[in-house]
Nucleic acid binder design. Structure first.
Lengths: 193, 193
DNA sequence: AATTAATTCGGACGTTCGTCTTAATTCATA
DNA sequence: TATGAATTAAGACGAACGTCCGAATTAATT
C-alpha cells in the first residue's frame, strides 16, 4: 500500500533469499524450508517457480557467475595498461575479502560442490574459464615482452594468475585477523615481472 | 579364520571407510548410515567409537592432514637444492591429480566446509599454515638471491606458491580431459625466477 | 459479468537423518 | 568358572528433509 512498488516478484524474492542463505550458511546447511521461511513465502512456492532444489540452486550459481564476470570485467576495463590491470585485479580480490566475503565464500563452496554434482561442475568450469579468458586478454601484451614465460601459452599464464588469486584468497579467508594476511595477495602482481 | 590377521579394529575400519566415502562422494552427500553399511558395521558403532558425526568427520580431517604433511615433507626432502624442491612440489600436485584425485577432492571439500564449520576451520587453517611453513623453509635460500621479491617476507612467498598450487589444481580438477591442463601447474615452478 | 489461467496457500506424503536406549555377546581378569 | 567391563547388535525416537497435491485466491481474457 506504500507509494513505492512494494510488490516485487515472488520468484525474484525467492532467488535473492536463496542467494543470501547460501552465501551466509553454505550449500550443505541450507534447506528449502530455510529459504521459504526467510523469504516469507510458503514452501511450495519454491517448487512452483524453480521445480526442485537443484533448479533453484542452479539459478543461484548463475546469479553468482554474472556478478563475478561483470565486476571483474569492470575492474579490468577501468584502467589502461597491463600492469595496472593486474593490480586492479589484485585490489578487487582484496576488496572482495574485506567488503563482500560472502560472495567469495559462495565461490569457494560452489567450487567444492561442483566436484560431486555434475550440474554444478559445468557452470563452475565455465566461470573459471571465462575469468581466465578475461585475464588472458589483459596480460597478452605483457607476455610478448617477458622472456621467461613466453614459451608458455598466455592461457596458461592467465590460469596461473587466477589460480593464485583464488588459492591465496582461500588462505586469507581461513586466516581470520592475521596481520599481513593480504601480503601474499599483493605478491601476485609481481609474478609477471 | 584365515592365517592372516583378518580381524582389524572395528574403529579403524569405520575410520577408513569414512575416509573413503567422504573422498569419493563429498561431505554433503555422506551419511552415518552410508558409512556404517559400507563398513559392514551396525550404525550405533559409529557413535560408540566417535561420539557423533562431527567427531568421526573430524578424525577424517586429521587423517587427511597427516597424509598431506607426510607426503609433502617426503617430497621436499627427497631432493637437495631449492629449485628442485619447487619442481618436486609441482610434480607432487601433478601426481596427486592424476593418481589420487580423491585425496585432492577431500582437501578442496573440507576447505569449503571449514568456511561454515568452526570445528573444521582451525584444522584446515593449520594444514595450510603447516604446508606453507614447509615451503617457506625450502625457498628461504632462494629468497636472498632474488631481487624483486626479497622485500616481502618469505612466509608470504610460501603462501603465494601454495595458493597457486591449490588454485590451479582446482581448475585442473574441473577441466576434465583438457589437453594442456597441466601447463599452468608447471608454470608455478618459474614464479621465483 | 463469466470463464479461464496463473498464482498462492496449507498441509500431507514417504523418506532419510543423527542420536539414543536397551539387550545380547565377547573378552579379560581373578 | 564366576564376575564385571568392553564391545556388538538391533531397533526405536523425534526431527528434518524434498516433493507433491488439492483447494483457495487473484489476475487476465472474453
Amino acid at each position: 500500500m506504500d507509494g513505492k512498488a512494494e510488490k516485487v516478484n515472488q520468484s525474484e524474492k525467492i532467488l535473492q533469499t536463496a542467494f543470501q542463505c547460501l552465501s551466509t550458511r553454505g550449500y550443505a546447511n541450507v534447506s528449502m524450508r530455510d529459504i521459504a521461511d526467510q523469504a516469507g513465502v510458503v514452501l511450495s512456492q519454491l517448487n512452483y517457480y524453480y521445480k526442485n532444489k537443484e533448479g533453484l540452486f542452479t539459478e543461484v550459481v548463475k546469479m553468482m557467475m554474472q556478478q563475478y564476470l561483470h565486476e571483474v570485467e569492470d575492474k579490468l576495463k577501468s584502467v589502461a595498461n597491463t600492469k595496472e590491470k593486474i593490480s586492479s585485479l589484485v585490489k578487487y580480490f582484496c576488496e572482495l575479502i574485506r567488503k563482500n566475503p560472502e560472495l567469495l565464500k559462495l565461490f569457494i563452496d560452489f567450487t567444492a560442490q561442483s566436484l560431486w554434482l555434475p550440474s554444478f561442475r559445468s557452470h563452475l568450469k565455465n566461470l573459471f574459464d571465462d575469468l581466465s579468458e578475461m585475464i588472458e586478454k589483459s596480460v597478452l601484451a605483457e607476455m610478448t615482452i617477458n622472456k621467461n614465460l613466453s614459451e608458455y601459452s598466455s592461457k596458461s599464464v592467465a590460469k596461473l594468475l587466477l589460480g593464485a588469486l583464488y588459492g591465496i584468497s582461500v588462505q586469507i579467508m581461513l586466516d581470520s585477523d592475521e596481520d599481513n594476511a593480504f601480503e601474499p595477495l599483493n605478491l601476485v602482481g609481481m609474478i609477471l615481472n
